[in-house]
């Protein structure tokens, strides 16, 4: 399990709301549901902010919490994602990453707390907030009886964009993602990787300021993954903000400049990748924080073929 001081130190010092920002309700960062793990809530170590925060973070989460029946999926997460950062959210399966990102993007109504996109409250002014972000939800169907090109046009037109702009951008996105030759193929005939790419293109077509991508690299082949990474890095370099969730630590360490470690619905550590990994690799830190690593004992039969 996690040594209390690690969870406390990291969680306490790095996920404090930026100064001058709407005060979260009712207690900043407090867990609305009883915390079962040994790690205390962030408020118990209020400490100074670990890094200088820009005036308005691209995404600010304030006390988000959600329970499904008996299961507490997210338990009071507050987090600032600085504008212009490439932010990784890592956590074991079932940590609450998808629930967290769904609540941050307006897909799932939180029980407590809210999220701000560049200062716009997602749950109070959803239409404004949604103009600012592009999202790639995980495990969601697409309108797959449309061709790839039609799906892109649909995403653009739904956002009220001009037909000519939609058409030229759709063409460029399809070319950039290497989908041009399948533009007229129905999405239902796409491979899993191609679907991820067309969904990503749909999220990009209105030139959002913030991209929230849930597991963008799952089932994407290495060439396409490098292709997507290139596009995302370019996007960040020109001032955009990207949040990706993943459980591939290596990828996050190489690609992201910030990272938050989420487990059991709580933030265990957050900050720049260097701060969080503290000299070790991200994977080692992650395992230490999350407290996994049960040895593969009792599977002796697996070696006696």
């Amino acid at each position: 399990m996690i040594p209390p001081e690690i969870g406390g130190r990291y969680a306490g010092s790095m996920s404090v709301p930026s100064p001058g920002y709407p005060a979260p309700e009712p207690h900043p960062g407090a867990a609305p549901y009883p915390v079962t793990g040994p790690h205390p809530g962030p408020t118990e170590h209020p400490g100074p902010a670990g890094y200088p925060s820009p005036a308005v973070p691209a995404l600010a989460l304030r006390g988000l919490a959600k329970r499904f029946g008996d299961k507490i999926a997210v338990n009071g997460i507050s987090l600032d994602v600085p504008a212009g950062s490439f932010y990784g959210v890592v956590g074991p399966n079932g940590a609450g990453k998808t629930t967290l990102l769904s609540m941050a993007t307006g897909l799932l109504r939180p029980d407590y707390g809210t999220a701000f996109i560049h200062g716009v409250d997602v749950w109070a002014r959803p239409l404004e907030a949604k103009k600012l972000m592009g999202i790639l939800p995980d495990g969601v169907r697409l309108f797959d009886r449309l061709s790839g090109e039609q799906l892109l046009s649909y995403a653009g037109l739904l956002r009220g964009m001009d037909r000519a702009v939609v058409q030229s951008r759709a063409g460029e996105l399809l070319a950039a993602l290497d989908l041009s030759k399948d533009a007229g193929t129905l999405v239902v005939d796409y491979s899993a990787g191609m679907r991820k790419k067309i969904a990503l293109a749909s999220a990009l077509i209105h030139a959002p300021r913030l991209l929230v991508l849930d597991e963008p690299f799952e089932s994407v082949d290495p060439v396409s993954a490098a292709n997507i990474r290139g596009i995302l890095e370019q996007y960040v370099a020109s001032g955009g903000t990207v949040i990706v969730s993943s459980h591939v630590m290596d990828l996050v360490q190489r690609m992201c400049d910030h990272v938050a470690v989420v487990a059991a619905g709580r933030v265990l550590a957050a900050g720049t990748v260097e701060e969080v990994r503290a000299g070790a690799t991200l994977e080692e830190r992650f395992v230490a924080l999350v407290g996994g690593g049960t040895r593969a004992e009792g599977l002796e039969w697996l070696r006696t073929f």
Binding site: S147, Q150, R159, R163, G184, T185, D189
Partner: peptide
């Protein structure tokens, strides 16, 4: 599978008004 199609066929999206 279905045949792979070329780009440039907006289908009904080219006919209906370009509004949401």
């Amino acid at each position: 599978g279905g045949g792979s199609g070329k780009a440039g066929k907006a289908g009904l999206f080219g006919i209906f008004p370009a509004t949401p």
